[in-house]
Design a binder for these strands. Structure first.
Lengths: 241, 241, 241, 241
DNA sequence: CATGAATGAGTATTCATTCAT
DNA sequence: AATGAATGAATACTCATTCAT
């Protein structure tokens, strides 16, 4: 004769799992997966060592369930937002919004992000592959779709590979997020995300170069560009030995 | 009574340390610092467990000395190259070169890079701060100086924060390097670095947007694209060994 | 306010204890006492872990009550049968019957027998002493009495120690029972108990040696043998329920 | 550069393994395999916990190597002795010798015997099968061969299954050995092995029954019994046949 | 009485480090 | 300096037992 009805029990289990996962996220983020002990997690969760095994098969299982619990919702939000039918002119707004969401996603899940950064490279192939598919890759695909649409609409340059461009955009944010949120070097100047996002969107859309002044009578420098095709550039490569 | 003269001995010691560090890099990269054992390193280095302690204080000490040995040279090369007085027109070339060097740096030190990614976040503050200073930050500063100079010369937009822009540029590459070299999801499309670099430089300089007024009398440059297509470029790839 | 009368309740308790003990016997026999868990027993008994502690003080207590429940009845049956005043000539039949009962006892309680074999040697002195007294020793005594009587009647040789002989007889069966029922080596020839019992009784009564001069005028006893052939012997089997 | 020559090292390893196995035998015999801890064994062997793992893969591995080390030699001795071409007349002597060896084997390896009794039934099929083959079964086969030979020579009754008889003989000893050496109930009468062996051989050869026609001119032997304490009995044994 | 989640003591095994040779 | 056996602290996981419901 169960003390609780099945659904009530299920809710309790869910809650307990969350409690333990949250503790695991904190502890793993601080000490790293391998250096964190089950006792650490148990203490942080306010339960006994043994209890953890009532909710997770083993230590690894904690790791496996970390991102699903915490990143599912934000990722879906981003995806929904980007996929939302926007007005053709809103490219800048869409990017702004996407950037904002990426930033929020990482900031709000700083700890899990740190865990994942340190553990994913060490996971066995199967698990790693699943993570990579789950977490960042389909975000790229969503963005890629957006870029393609803009190219088709003649808004974005057609000479750029949309897949690469789709990875460049979040990559621009990555350096900041990585350093400021994941690595956190103690005494370092922090940049404001508003500024970062503004700059990122600007550069992504228009580049760092001053508009050539659109001199109507002066030929723009296609040849300059032509000269600097990767081909030629490479000849100048200075190899590092 | 030493069998060797002091300098000769010192050379031998240096060599042995290198040998052990190289083994440590490989082993740590494969299994992660925490899961790698001293025996693993010893076996890979072809020495006995105990011998390692004649050259390094403890396991952690191996980690501490990893990057100094391996990244010193390449970083200095990059810095020198970027700082080298270039011709004013060569902005594109400089970026191209810088990008190429960043890529080479990571690819050639893939293993150490992976170790660092997985261990830096777990280091204690002091060590981590030193790493961050040593490794990536002053690379940013160098780039920042370059961008400031270009802004002063009226080549780069003045409305963008040069510090942020300096971080954006390598960040664009980071997403690719991270995924393709560090995380290595098993079955995934790999992008060619020629293509990536080309796109990165393009976006960084001019953005993804089609120039708004696009010199009226000049045809859009699909052919330009054709000429400088990465496809062809690749044939000329110069591999850095 | 009890829902049941005291005796009814007691009956229920008894039943539940039986149910749990039966499960314990099975589980202990399969995995061994130490490797079996309370959960295993609970699952096999169809009750919850906690419930077991309403009927037994602790895990050890299960072990203590195992044989009392299961072997009491059969042992009493054997004892009664052997002690039963038999006709003086029936020595062979008595032994046959005793052997049959010993075999049945072990076969029917194979699992408990296996548990006891593996746990008795590890019990503390007090418990072990009790078991040894309870279970096999007084069976020996009963047999010893029978042998003494036969010796007094001039049927059995007087030069043999009746106590030793009383142990020899069941011992002859033991090797078979031990190997075939307790140890059960996977692919091994199994002997039929009819044959075993026949041989055991024969050897015990007359030995393996060919009668030295075989009183010439008396026919050798193939018919005796014929009469007591396993086939027929089985008809006389008294099964212990 | 090894500190020791290869053979010297191998000798040391062998010695150390023996030392640990001896300790394991004692500890396992006392507490049982499952209840004994590696620390127990280590303490008994005078080494550290970790050292055990330099010589044995795991706890189970200790068990696996127990009997090989201790029983190999005695078993071979028994086998050799039994198989030894004896004079045709010595059937009684052969059995006496075999019985004596079985008794010695168990007594001298009491502890291991106890371990095996408690652990064999719990081993997985494969391991158990190997043990059964290794240890007792081929002893039976040797004895079976002997019995067959005696039957062929007309010394032993041909109506008995030699395989069964071969198991009956050591079985007769088993009850005593089991109780007196393995189970050791605290306060219990112990039988002398000389007596036991005498009785066992007597019963096995001639049975407990008084020879039916009892050579008419010879008085029944109550005095024979007096005379035939095992000591003396053995001296007269040769008179058989 | 029944339940099964919670507990935490107990243990096999690993591995960084030491040190006798 | 080199070796690798010895060490023992550290830790994931199990499971008998308790107890709130």
């Amino acid at each position: 004769m169960p003390r609780l009805t099945a659904p009530a029990r299920r809710a309790l289990v869910r809650e307990r799992r969350q409690q333990i996962l949250a503790a695991a996220a904190t502890v793993f983020a601080e000490k790293g997966f391998d250096r964190a002990t089950i006792s650490d997690v148990a203490r942080a969760a306010g339960v006994s060592d043994g209890s953890i095994y009532n909710y997770f098969r083993d230590k690894q299982d904690l790791l496996v369930h970390l991102p699903r619990q915490f990143m599912q919702t934000p990722i879906e939000a981003v995806q929904a937002a980007i996929a939302k039918p926007g007005t053709p002119l809103a490219a800048e707004n869409v990017l702004q919004f996407a950037a904002q969401n990426i930033v929020n996603l990482i900031i709000q899940n700083r700890e899990i992000a740190r865990v994942l950064f340190t553990t994913i490279p060490l996971m066995d192939d199967k698990l790693r592959a699943e993570y990579m598919r789950q977490v960042p890759l389909y975000a790229f695909e969503t963005l890629e779709g957006f870029i393609k649409a803009q190219q088709a609409a003649g808004v974005f340059r057609a000479d750029l590979d949309p897949a690469i461009a789709a990875r460049i955009f979040p990559g621009m944010l990555l350096a900041f997020l990585l350093i400021q949120e994941i690595l956190q070097p103690p005494d370092m100047h922090r940049f404001e995300y508003d500024q970062i996002i503004y700059t990122v969107v600007q550069v992504f859309l228009r580049g760092v170069t001053v508009p050539e002044k659109a001199a109507p009578d002066i030929a723009p420098k296609p040849h300059t560009k032509a000269k600097s095709t990767p081909r030629q550039a490479r000849k100048q490569e200075i190899t590092v030995e």
